[in-house]
């Protein structure tokens, strides 16, 4: 735990350590993790797909050397899949077994009241921790040394599920009617929620979270990200391809390429032993960055212009360098 305290001592130390784990982040992102750790608040991360929302949670877990517990949200997800479930198969089995012993227990009992009294002595064993099957959210609370809990794509789940999350997000506890309240251990989990904004998240949920919006990175940051993720790529090509992608984002596209696409593209180009961008090559590899045929057709006419612009911009940018 001391390590974590040390890592999270300041925003800068967090940033450095993120970088050491090959996650290049802006001050804003590092501040979010810093506040999340010190204020013990969950972080709701929003932003276009592919900017590293999920990656942030994974890297945080890696960095703090904590286990990562992940809950992928989808429509129809409910408490039995997210929080806990009774092991009803086991319960049924035990009922069968008990049925046979019930006679022995009741033997010699006088009158109805006493029988019931004896039965009561069994207690509510069927609804004890023995028969409880913890699901991700509960598991996260039960981790002794704390953990990183990632609730992925919370916008995909139903409204009802959001309400279920409220208790765990504000108080780090869940209430189970049959047992009582399960509280987090000494170190509550560091919680990340991600959302692609397919629908508006309720105010109640937002209120309980820090809200981090990760936009597309600027040229500088994206270059550093590519450098960290695809270190073998020649610097010239790296500059060109980032410029190209940045310009592509300004176009009116159905789905603009995100960082993950840039990384994929860089890897592709590296594999093809490319030294510098040229229109033909871009045309052949366009399907790595654009995921809709419509977009590819739209961009097709502009490829030459964009490529030349990117190459030229790089030439200007590169000259002053020694």
């Amino acid at each position: 735990m001391a390590d974590i305290e040390q890592l999270a001592e300041s925003v800068d130390s967090l940033k450095d350590s993120f970088e050491a784990h090959r996650y290049i982040c802006s001050n804003q992102i590092a501040t979010a993790v810093y506040l999340a750790f010190h204020l013990r608040k969950p972080v709701l991360i929003e932003g276009p797909p592919g900017v590293g929302k999920t990656e942030l949670a994974k890297t945080t877990a890696e960095m703090f050397a904590l286990p990562l517990i992940r809950l992928q949200c989808y429509e129809g997800l409910d408490e039995t899949k997210a929080i806990y479930e009774w092991k009803y198969g086991k319960q049924l089995l035990y009922t069968q077994v008990l049925k046979e012993t019930v006679d022995e227990v009741l033997q010699g009992a006088q009158g109805f009241a006493e029988s019931v009294g004896r039965l009561h002595e069994f207690g509510d064993i069927f609804f004890s921790e023995e028969f409880l099957e913890p699901r991700p959210l509960m598991k996260a609370l039960q981790e002794e040394a704390g953990c990183v809990l990632l609730i992925d794509e919370v916008d995909k789940s139903d409204h009802e599920f959001e309400s279920l999350l409220l208790e765990i997000l504000s108080d780090f506890q869940v209430s189970i009617p049959e047992i009582g309240t399960v509280k987090a251990h000494r170190d509550p989990p560091i919680v990340f929620l991600t959302s692609n904004n397919t629908r508006e998240i309720s105010d109640a949920l937002k209120r309980r979270c820090l809200h981090l919006y990760i936009p597309f990175p600027d040229t500088d940051l994206e270059q550093r990200i590519i450098q960290a993720r695809v270190p073998d790529i020649p610097p010239e090509l790296r500059r060109q391809l980032v410029t190209f992608i940045q310009e592509l984002r300004d176009l009116d596209l159905k789905k603009v390429p995100a960082i993950s696409e840039t990384i994929d593209w860089a890897r592709t180009l590296l594999l093809l032993h490319t030294e510098s961008l040229d229109p033909e090559l871009v045309r052949d590899t366009l399907n790595v960055i654009l995921k809709f045929q419509e977009d590819i057709e739209n961009v097709d006419a502009e490829i030459a212009t964009l490529t030349n612009a990117a190459v030229r911009a790089d030439g200007i940018g590169a000259k002053p360098r020694p």
Binding site: V11, N27, Q28, T31, A32, L35, H38, L39, K41, V43, L44, E46, D203, K206, R207, L210, H211, L212, Y213
Partner: peptide, 30 residues
């Protein structure tokens, strides 16, 4: 209240840091 907690942690000294911190706590949409 969250903003106050954040402020306690961050302080007024570093303007950019304060801005980053408060922008995590107060506004909740892009």
């Amino acid at each position: 209240l969250d903003a106050m907690n954040a402020l306690e942690l961050v302080g007024y000294r570093d303007r950019a840091f304060l801005k980053d911190s408060l922008s995590l706590v107060l506004p909740k949409t892009a």
